Simulated assay, not measured.
Amino acid sequence: MLSYAIILTSVLVLVSLLMNVWRILRGPELPDRILALDTLYINSIALIILLGLHNGSALYFEGALLIAMLGFVSTAALSKYLLRGDIIE
């Protein structure tokens, strides 16, 4: 029963990922695209964690943690670039 719930949740997260990609491609402004990219990496973390639960392996959780750290840094860098025009002062 748990495997069916994980598969259903994975399909719903994949639909969410596709909607994020649509927003990145069709976003009217740059802040919309940055927000969609931020949501995209959060949804990819959820998908990796669901895959780890399905396979019963703890390695997926470490990969999700790595993506979370890189996603946070990239979102902060893109936001700073959007506000100031440069990343490193």
Rank of each mutant, 00 (worst) to 15 (best):
T75A: 13
T39D: 11
F72R: 05
S57C: 06
M19T: 08
M1R: 05
I7Q: 02
L18C: 04
D38W: 02
I67T: 03
A68D: 07
Y60C: 09
N20E: 10
S74W: 05
L25Y: 15
F61P: 08
D32M: 10
N20H: 09
P28L: 05
T39C: 12
L25T: 09
A46S: 02
A58P: 08
I24H: 00
Y41L: 02
I67L: 11
I7E: 06
V21Y: 02
R84I: 08
V21L: 07
G63M: 14
L65G: 06
L25Q: 07
I42A: 14
G85T: 03
A36V: 04
A46V: 03
N55K: 14
G52P: 03
A68H: 13
N20D: 11
G27K: 06
L47I: 00
L25R: 14
S44E: 03
S57P: 11
L14W: 05
S57E: 15
A64R: 02
S10H: 01
L65Y: 10
V11W: 02
I48S: 03
A77L: 13
A36Y: 00
N20A: 12
L83G: 09
L30A: 01
A46G: 01
L83C: 11
L53Q: 07
T75V: 05
T39H: 09
D86A: 02
A76P: 10
L14R: 01
R84D: 00
N55I: 13
S44Y: 09
W22L: 06
L53G: 07
A77E: 14
L70C: 13
L78C: 00
I7W: 05
F61W: 12
G71M: 11
A68P: 03
A64I: 06
P28A: 04
E62W: 12
